[in-house]
């Protein structure tokens, strides 16, 4: 779809884009960032059979666990809005300034932005993604809860971490939409989720007569798998690269 080249190699691109997001520099973050996609996929795998049997209520029931997982992920692993923590180099022997207590730091610096991003995900990203699902062929006259909940899952997977790290800066979001941002595990997760959901529509028309072909099981499946793959690639192989058009 687009070629990917190393951002460092091009001096042409304006330097105004945000740098790739680095996960927090502590052991818990480094560990949990790898456990998190496994947990998300397990949640999906665990609820798969009931998802096939009764998509709407299963999607509703797994919404809260997914939200909690995502909030835990952003809180543990990612730097909140505005603060890519500059890793201050300490001169040997320099005296440490007062470090705020852990609890205080967590509440102000993490939990509040996390819930704000949850709120934004619910109020802005979910309706928007649901509208896009409809534009891509989701049923208009039936299955309203299915489509809305599917949009909510896609939103939780794709946009919640992104809001957490980038906030509501219009310019950054413009760059997000125009695929101008350098790839990192958060942006990779977004692209992976969306592309995965799109590819998830392919098996629906096949005449295999499987229960799981019904709306929106394959879309949700594509989104979850796409999220895991996109996050993994974005955090490792493609980290820091930019998507190039033309």
């Amino acid at each position: 779809m687009a070629t990917i080249i190393n951002a460092n190699a091009t001096s042409k691109t304006p330097p105004s884009t945000a740098p790739p997001v680095e996960p927090l520099n502590n052991d818990a973050a480094r560990l949990y960032t790898h456990i998190h996609p496994v947990l998300v996929l397990s949640l999906y795998a665990f609820s798969f059979s009931s998802l096939v049997a009764d998509p709407a209520s299963t999607l509703l029931n797994t919404l809260a666990p997914l939200a909690i997982l995502q909030i835990a992920y952003v809180a543990v692993c990612l730097p909140p809005t505005g603060g890519t923590p500059t890793i201050r180099k300490q001169k040997p022997g320099e005296k440490r300034s007062r470090v705020p207590s852990k609890l205080e730091n967590g509440l102000n610096g993490k939990i509040v932005p996390a819930f704000l991003s949850l709120l934004l995900t619910a109020l802005a990203a979910t309706p928007l993604l649901t509208a896009i699902l409809v534009l891509f062929g989701a049923p208009v006259t039936t299955h309203h809860p299915h489509t809305l909940l599917c949009g909510a899952h896609v939103a939780l997977l794709s946009t919640l971490p992104l809001v957490y790290v980038h906030g509501v800066n219009g310019e950054t979001w413009r760059q997000v939409v125009a695929l101008l941002l350098p790839i990192d595990e958060v942006y990779g997760g977004l692209i992976g989720t969306v592309v995965g959901a799109w590819l998830g529509a392919v098996p629906i028309p096949l005449d295999w007569d499987r229960e799981w072909q019904k709306w929106p099981v394959t879309i949700v499946t594509g989104a979850y798998i796409g999220y895991a793959v996109g996050k993994l690639l974005g955090g490792t192989l493609l980290k820091g690269k930019k998507i190039m058009f033309d």
């Binding site: 534009l135 891509f136 062929g137 799109w198 529509a201 392919v202 629906i204 028309p205 096949l206 005449d207 295999w208």
Partner: peptide
């Protein structure tokens, strides 16, 4: 996939949206 012969329109609708 023979079913995609019958349901070919779905492929084109899908690809066009993308």
């Amino acid at each position: 996939a023979s079913s995609y012969v019958e349901e070919e329109h779905n492929f084109w609708y899908w690809a066009t949206s993308g």
